[in-house]
Each structure stands twice: as structure tokens, then as C-alpha cells.
Design a protein around this nucleic acid. Sequence first.
RNA 1: GCAGGGGUGGUCGAGUGGUUAAUGGCACCGGGCUGUAAACCCGGCGGGUUCACACCCUACGGAGGUUCGAAUCCUCCCCCCUGCA
Length: 330
Amino acid sequence: MGGRDFPRAILRHVSADTIQRPVIAIVGPTASGKSTLGIGVALEINGEIINCDSVQVYQEIQVATAKVPLEERKGVPHHLIDFVPPSINYTAVEWAREAAKRIDEIESRRRVPLLVGGTGFYLRALRNPFFISPQTDESLRQRLNTMREKHGAEYLHRVLRRLDARAAAQLYPRDWPRVQRAIEVYVQTGRSIVDQKGDRPEAHESSRRLRILALNPPRAELYERINQRTEAHFDAGLVGEVQALLSRGVPPNSNALGAHGYRRVVEFLQGKRDLPSAVEQTKLDVRHYAKRQLTWFRHEAGVEWFDGFGEEKSVLACVLAALAVGPRAK
RNA sequence: GCAGGGGUGGUCGAGUGGUUAAUGGCACCGGGCUGUAAACCCGGCGGGUUCACACCCUACGGAGGUUCGAAUCCUCCCCCCUGCA
């Protein structure tokens, strides 16, 4: 139950380096207090934080992102946060590349890198790099998006079946992001994605020294917190912020405006739903997301779990104790 | 008080005598995830026993009744909504 499924603390394959020069990752569901815990840990161990959240990378969007304001960072440097224009669609691979660089820089200053954020996919891109593939072809992607909007997801799957039947066979027809990706890979490289997936490049050296610490707060309390935080975002002027972003020309279908909170407000402003339903749907979106994050990290290898919220003093204490002793993960 | 409509599983809502533990949506739970990942998709979902085929129990406001058989028909009772008073 709840992810603490490592009864035996089997210490194996743990190098001395992992204990002496760890790269720490603090993960967990949204609203579990990762940022606070991250700052707390950083202060204790001379750390710097690298954001590992796919939405906090964007500039300009603010109220619903849960970015820690500068004045609350207690002097701990934060990297890879607030640095991508909201109309750009940033990717996991780009993040992983940048993160690796920052890790090196931070360590060269004799400080400890602390990856903080809930995007498991980003972390995986760092630990198990994806096969090398060309940069996204935005015009191709745009064309595929248009096709899907016109004819539906299944239509794209049929297109893929003609191009690359093996890839199509492995994907659900409605799973359009992966179907699109498979088409893009085939068109851009002339080879099936299934033949390339195994070609994973060597991971950055530091990922062997990774300590992944995950927060596991009580589910009901987490959900309650999410609901309240969502209300707070709306009270803090979320709608106005979205209006401003749209009028500034940020595309309504950009990644940034697809983030929780933003997406539903865009729909509201487009007249597709009323305000109360935007609020309720956002709460739901975020709760579902939190649950998926839990699922993700539960199945990620080598995760060390901590029950409770990151703001709790006792949790910080447990984390610091664990860092002093060494990994207890399998 | 009279007339009409209605009370279904956590919720909304189908079903109007028989493969009905009861279509479907939502919630909730679980899972997947190789350059969009705060995206996208898949599965489970009354309870109990079983590895499993299977079996048992409890369910459609309440109590009776009709019937081989009822959520569905009849009677009485309770509650809700609308119209008239």
C-alpha cells in the first residue's frame, strides 16, 4: 500500500560515490511539498536546485504553476526554471541535455545538484536517454495535427499502418501523440521507430549517483490540498493572466497554455465551458495527474519513499537521515 | 387538498415482466508511457469464497401481493418536484 514496498533494505550496487557525491532527485505528486523539501535539503547539504517540472520551465505563466517565488527560495539557486518562452514547446530531451550540463556545473562548484519536480518523463530522459532522433519538424507536426482535428485520431493510425505497420500494431488507434510521433520518426528518418527504440545512448555519468527520493502523502489529504490550491489560483487572478497571455499572442494550443489551470481557462475564454466548470475540471485534472505521478514513480527503479508532505519537519529529518546513511532502495 | 411527474448501485442517468449484478457518463482504484508527458492511452469498479471454470449473498424508497419469474404489474405507506387551489 502506498508505495513503501521495500521491506528489506538491500544495499547493493551502491557505490561509495552515491553516498559521498550524490545527485539527489526529489519527486512525488503535485502539491506534495517537493519544492519546500527541496529548499530545506539544499540548505542543509549545500545544494542547488534544478527544476524537473515540464511546466515550470516556461516564462510568463505564473499563477497556476506553483513556481517558488524568488523571495521564498532562501538564497538557494534555482536552475532551468522560467527560461523558455511560452510559445515554444520544450521537450524532455532538451531538458535532459540542459540538466546534465547544470549538474556538471554545480558539481564543479563543489555543490550538490538537487533535481526537484514531478515530471517523471524528464527524469527518465536523463537516466535512460532516448534514441537519437531529429529535432521535431514543426511543420510536419502541424500538418498531422490538422489531419487529426479533421479526421480523428484513428485516421492517423491508418496512415501509420500504411507507412509502418509494425509500429501501428503496437499502438492503440486513439493514442494519437505516439501515433504522430511514430509517423514523424518514419517520415524524418526513413526507418521504423520500433527498430530505433533500442538504441539508447549512454546516460550521463551522474545518473549512476542518483538518489531518487519520493514523497507519498496521504491520498485524501493530497486531493483536498489540490482542490484548495486550485481555488486559490483562480482567486489569485488566473483568468486575467490567461487573457493577457492570449492577447499577447501565446498560442492557445501551446504546451504552456495546455498546463493545468490554463487549459480549462482557455476553454472558458473561448466560450466552451462556464467558469465554475473550468474550476471543477481543473481540480479533477490535477487530481488525476497526481495519481498518475504516483503510479509512475511507484514503478520507477530505485526510488526511496517518504510518507507525508514535504513541509513536515519530520519528513525533512527522515530525508536528511537517509542521505547521511545511504540508499536503502533495492 | 386535488392533478401530474418522480424516487435505480459513490453520483448523474438508462432500463418498464425473463441471458439484469442491472446500458452509459462521471467519481474512485489500478496499469502503460523511448524528443508534445501538467500530454495521451488501457483496464477494473455491489459484497464474499476460489489460482481458475464456478459458486453464494445482498441490491432498484418501505411493506405486502400477483406470477414459474418483478427494478419493471397491483395495493397501502413514506419522501421529492411541478401545475391548480
